[in-house]
Design a protein around this nucleic acid. Structure first.
Length: 941
RNA sequence: GGGAGCUUAGCUCAGUUGGUUCAGCGCAUCUGCCUUACAAGCAGAGGGUCGGGGGUUCGAAUCCCUCAGCUCCCACCA
């Protein structure tokens, strides 16, 4: 057999992936075996494989392959997320290229284009997963907008509404005036150091007096929406004005001067103009003080008639700002204008300044429903790795806010709520059911808003008050909201109008671990109880709860916490037992990888260059759980080199002739490696148990490179002189050969989770095998407890060899030149076993035990035994003496400190017996060593 | 502003209940080698007193306090 000098990944990777698929090794169906299940964090359907995916999926593949090797029923469920925002943006972009405007399309038409886009470009990422070796069960692919999945999401909305967890309420949202849509917080970007702006100080006259109060604002155009002026209750400067009315400039609206702790005395003038319609904090103050809300802005960012100044109506807010400033300057109302750095938000897409805007949105009330999810992490029912995230998690869950689940988009699950002309709401899974509710309602002659019983209390008060407060302001807001979420724009033939909003993407992906096993189907979902009967669904029953979730900490709250909430709500059971949170992939300068920076390599390019296995190793070499991964292409190179090392070990072993001659010389090597292997298998298990994947890889890396290649193979390598015949190839006895093949197989099995491709290739090269006999479905090696004595002796042998090499290197003696060595020890028998190996690897011409110090030799100590190397170099007595003296001095200090410790009664009394014993041992070893060194020194003198 | 965490060789990081076989791995550096598995390699070496200071303890990188620097999450000043 002739093998290439370098491992060539391209020649094997696609071959084996296809082979694995052909034999359905990744396919899972419930059986009597123990399940090991992972659901993939579904990438956006728009996604293209990036380094974060590479890391995330490699980790999952490692664990799933490990479980498969252990004989568990490994099931890794793939799929994609419909990703409302991202996908809708892609579709809009596609339409733009075709010169079609979204605003000109009907909802259905737009959705047709969206599905067209999805069919054409969606899910590329899943195909890419094959390249990295991901062993997912392709028959289980899911999409969060599949028909069944869609049903599940709607069903959950209706159920939670019924249970009172879902309500409609007002919310300040980020409004993009240019795109005329609401944006999530993630889509709003803030300039790192803020933006330059001005802080204007304006005089507001106090009604019926000559006094005035000065407020500071950076948004003069909102003055017409003012409904109060607020000061801090402890601000002595303004105490006398509290309760009086101030007049809003230009329109002379009287507004109360109120106190609120939110106002900071030190900022600006200490007086705040309150505009509840256009600022979150102002809105909160408005709620606390029952203030009216006057929304003076149109959705496109121009002013409306509520601003009360006709010449401003229809003008852009920034134009109005200028006009207001000019006018108030002329009127001497502007008293100061100072530079100011503001943290203003801009739309990620249009770059237009975001306007806070009130609108009606759907919410999930979180406090109650999230309780068990909090407890689960607290009591380790669900373990987070690394544990530090427990704190973050607790903090978030204890201060959890209600979840706004409506989005002003078209792509996604449309909210199953219908409105009648009177504005009543009917929440139901289908329009027919909603219509039924509507009919009942009409017969009862009720005009209350159906479903409004779950509106939250604060807002309920505002709503019912009927006074000219925030409550009545709602009518104005209502108009605004109808633009933001326009519930009345989708009439149906029955006279009901479905809500036009869709659900937040997370409101579908939080059901992922349940929905991928069809957990909400009619057979197992009990509508009355709002619970899932697991027993009625064999798949769910078998696979749920899953074992581990692997994801990034960024979505701990968005997704992980919510999956737990859903799990407990519907199954009274956690969705997974462990959560492995890996870091973010960054570049060497710790910058996040991003397209715009251009610092993100394409994983497929890397695979092309270094092989999938090489890149997998590169990703995992430096990625302990929870830490960010500072990616460096060199790591992939290291991974590739490792694969090459394995490959060449194969070449070496397969290059030997096999002789039938018996050879006992290799027995010690075999025995040692057997035990070493057992030891490492044990260590690996510990690393896996704690999900220290990176540590496991390092352990394995060292086992293969150092122990197997550098030591074991060198130990058994036939010496050139022993091979007179065989066409130049060296001969190995068949027993050693077979054992070595066996070792190699085991090593490949240990390595398989990390390097699936090369391990499979080698598995089939080591032996002739049936095509179904693949390493992928083989059984992981079992470990027996290692013989510590043998391991210890081997370590001593290795140390001697290293010391000989060191002395050689220092003296400039070639490794090819055999040298003689003798040693003084009181336990020569302990060397019997490994003596031949030392002789071979240290290239000794002789290795004898003596009782007298040798003359003219290089000396070194291993333990308390003394070794003499006879080399043909001048021994410099001066140098030797210095070396010995240094060592002696160090040792004396060491002995002294140990003696001091042992002389300390409190230590002897206080420390555990074994620690004291250890110290005593150290002392006696040290003393013996000292004695040996002193003898050598004496001899030299 | 609230919360969490980090600071160990040039770089990235280990160091699990405090005990000089814990001061380590890998990369990088230096030295010598193209030794018929591998130069994508082999053999060997140097390098830190564990951010600063204080304390607890017989004993601290490991516990406590404090100062300094950095990171992340949440909320955000008109």
């Amino acid at each position: 057999m002739s093998l290439e000098k370098h491992y060539n990944p391209k020649a094997v990777e696609d071959k084996w992936y296809a082979h694995w698929l052909k034999h359905e090794f990744f396919k899972s169906t419930p059986d009597e075996r123990e399940p090991f299940t992972i659901v993939i964090p579904p990438p956006n359907v728009t996604g293209v494989l990036h380094m974060g995916h590479m890391l995330n999926n490699t980790l999952q593949d490692v664990l799933i392959r490990k479980a498969r090797l252990e004989g568990k029923n490994a099931c890794w469920v793939p799929g994609t997320d419909h990703a409302s925002i991202a996908t809708e943006a892609k579709v809009v972009q596609m339409l733009r290229e075709r010169k079609i405007k979204k605003s000109e399309l009907a909802r259905d038409e737009f959705l047709n284009y969206a599905w067209e886009w999805k069919a054409k470009y969606g899910g590329i990422i899943l195909q890419q997963l094959k390249k990295i070796g991901a062993s997912v069960d392709w028959e289980r692919e899911h999409f969060t907008m599949d028909e069944a999945y869609h049903k599940a999401v709607i069903r959950v909305f209706v159920d939670l509404h019924k249970k009172g967890f879902i309500y409609r309420g007002l919310r300040m949202i980020n409004w993009d005036c240019e795109a005329q849509t609401a944006l999530s917080n993630e889509e709003v970007i803030y300039a790192e150091n803020g933006e330059k702006s001005f802080l204007y100080h304006f005089k507001y006259r106090i009604q019926d007096t000559d006094e005035h109060i000065i407020i500071a604002t950076q948004r003069p155009e909102t003055i017409m929406g003012d409904t109060a002026v607020a000061v801090n209750p402890n601000d002595e400067r303004y105490k006398h004005l509290i309760g009086k009315m101030a007049l809003v400039p230009m329109i002379n609206r009287p507004v109360p001067i109120i106190t609120d702790n939110y106002v900071e005395k030190e900022f600006g003038t200490g007086c705040l103009k309150v505009t509840p319609a256009h600022d979150q904090n102002d809105y909160d103050i408005g709620v606390r003080h029952n203030l009216p809300v006057i929304d003076t802005l149109n959705p496109d960012g121009t002013l409306n008639e509520l601003c009360e100044i006709p010449e401003y109506v229809g003008l852009d807010r920034f134009k109005v700002r200028k006009l207001v400033v000019e006018r108030l300057r002329e009127e001497n109302i502007l008293v100061k204008e100072e530079d100011f750095v503001t943290r203003i938000g801009r739309s990620e897409r249009t770059n237009s300044v975001i306007e806070p805007r009130l609108s009606m949105q759907w919410f999930i009330r979180m406090k109650e429903i999230s309780k068990r999810a909090l407890e689960a992490v607290e009591n380790d029912e669900v373990k987070l790795h690394p544990e530090k995230f427990k704190n973050t998690y607790r903090h978030w869950m204890e201060n959890v806010r209600d979840w706004c689940i409506s989005r002003q988009l078209w792509w996604g699950q449309r909210i199953p709520a219908w409105y009648d002309e009177a504005g009543n709401v009917y929440v139901a899974e289908t329009e027919a059911e909603a219509f039924e509710q509507f009919n009942k309602n009409v017969h009862r002659g009720k005009s209350t808003v159906h479903g409004q019983q779950s509106t939250d209390d604060r807002r309920q008060t505002a709503n019912d008050s009927g006074k000219s407060t925030v409550g009545s302001g709602l009518s104005a807001i209502g108009k605004a909201a109808s633009v933001a979420s326009s519930p009345l724009s989708g009439e149906t033939e029955r006279g009901l109008y479905q809500d036009t909003d869709v659900l937040d993407t997370w409101a579908s992906s939080w059901l992922w671990p349940i929905a991928v096993f069809d957990g909400f189907n009619d057979r197992c979902f009990d509508k009355e109880k709002g619970k899932i009967n697991k027993a009625a669904n064999p798949e769910l029953n078998y696979y749920y709860p899953t074992q581990i979730l692997i994801t990034a900490p960024e979505i701990l709250f968005f997704w992980v916490a919510r999956m737990m909430i859903a799990g407990y709500e519907y199954l009274d059971e956690k969705p997974f037992s462990d959560v492995y949170l890996h870091g973010i992939v960054r570049d060497k300068q710790r910058r996040k990888m991003s397209k715009s920076l251009g610092n993100s390599p394409d994983p497929l390019d890397l695979i092309d260059k270094y092989g999938a296995d090489g890149v997998r190793i590169g990703m995992l070499l430096s990625s302990p759980a929870g830490n960010d991964l500072l990616f460096d292409e060199k790591l992939c190179e290291q991974g590739r080199n490792f694969c090459n090392k394995i490959w060449n070990a194969l070449r070496l072993v397969k290059g030997w002739n096999i002789s039938d001659e018996k050879n006992e010389a290799n027995t010690p090597a075999i025995l040692w490696f057997e035990n070493r292997l057992n030891q490492v298998i044990f260590q690996l298990e510990n690393s896996y148990a704690d999900y220290r994947i990176s540590e496991a890889l390092h352990t394995l890396y060292n086992l293969i490179w150092d122990d197997f290649c550098s030591w074991y193979l060198e130990m058994i390598k036939p010496a050139p002189s022993n091979s007179p015949e065989g066409g130049g190839r060296l001969a190995l006895d068949s027993h050693t050969y077979n054992v070595t093949i066996d070792f190699f197989e085991k090593l490949m099995q240990l390595a398989h989770p990390f390097v699936p491709f090369i391990s499979e290739e080698i598995w089939h090269t080591l032996k002739e095998r049936n095509e179904k006999d693949c390493i992928t479905v083989s059984r992981y090696p079992q470990s027996e407890s290692p013989n510590e004595n043998i391991l210890k002796q081997a370590e001593t042998a290795k140390e001697i060899i290293s010391r000989v090499r060191e002395v050689r290197a220092q003296a400039g003696i070639s490794p090819n030149e055999a040298v003689a060595m003798c040693a003084i020890t009181n336990n020569a028998a302990a060397y019997d076993f490994f003596k031949p190996l030392v002789t071979k690897l240290a290239n000794l011409s002789a290795f004898d035990f003596v009782t007298e110090e040798a003359d003219n030799a290089k000396t070194f100590l291993v333990g308390t035994d003394k070794f003499f190397l006879h080399i043909q170099t001048e021994i410099n007595p001066e140098e030797e003496r210095k070396k010995l003296t240094d060592e002696i001095n160090y040792l004396r200090g060491f002995i002294q400190s140990v003696q001091k410790k042992l002389g300390n009664e409190r230590f002897v009394a206080g420390a555990p017996a074994e620690v004291v014993e250890k110290e005593k041992q150290k002392l006696s070893d040290g003393e013996m060593k000292l004695k040996a060194l002193e003898e050598s020194l004496e001899k030299l003198n």
